[in-house]
Amino acid sequence: MSIWEYANPVKFMRTSGAVLPWVAAAAAVCTVAGLVWGFLTPQDYKQGSTVKIIFLHVPAALMAINIWLMMLVTSLIWLVRRHHVSALAAKAAAPVGAVMTLIALITGAIWGQPMWGTWWEWDPRLTSFLILFLFYLGYMALWGAVENPDSAADLTGVLCLVGSVFALLSRYAVNFWNQGLHQGASLSMAPGERMSAVYRYPLYLTMAGFFLLFLALLLVRTRTEIRRRRLAALLARENRA
């Protein structure tokens, strides 16, 4: 029994079909509970009620980066081991990641307006997310433009590798370019810098919720991609016969 068994689409379809309802239910419970709990937290003495947007902003930002990392890993698996499910999972994840990036950007703007007095600031973190969003757009556009699905998987895989390097480079270049307004990491491990437990626990819950939400969407979308490929395969065979 090895993890590579799930690279077989038939096996993947069977297992993911059984797991999906549970993941989806857990995602709904965690996200809703976390957001409601977060909404009921007391107002911050400095930031007032605007602080509550972090329950959307932080999990979305976290997922925006992690989804790209996941795409990098699955692209590598495709390029090295040629497992089709891996490539399709990367394809399926990209729009979710793009939307997460967009959520992080939009909630950041909504929060920034009362706090910094501007909707948009060329702050390193904001700028990096904007660049990440551009990478997501390019990646998805390339998937859409290449007709042969195997070629598309190869090309997007290579793009994902090169893009990862340059996304990272951009992150540090942008730091160099502008020092920024954004506060440091929201969840620091150092004692004394810790966020109050009142906010921390609901935040953990929404983070788990967003992760499960991504997982559920990923499974649904990968299943759709597999079915789409299968349909195309059946049609191709029909045409040839």
Binding site: I131, L134, F135, L137, G138, A141, L142, A145, L159, V162, G163, F166, A167, L169, S170, A173, V174, F176, W177
Partner: peptide, 19 residues
Amino acid sequence: LMSLLVLPLYVPTLIFGAE
């Protein structure tokens, strides 16, 4: 499409060059 793919890759070069 190439513009969309290439321009984000140009960001670090542009930043350091213009700086």
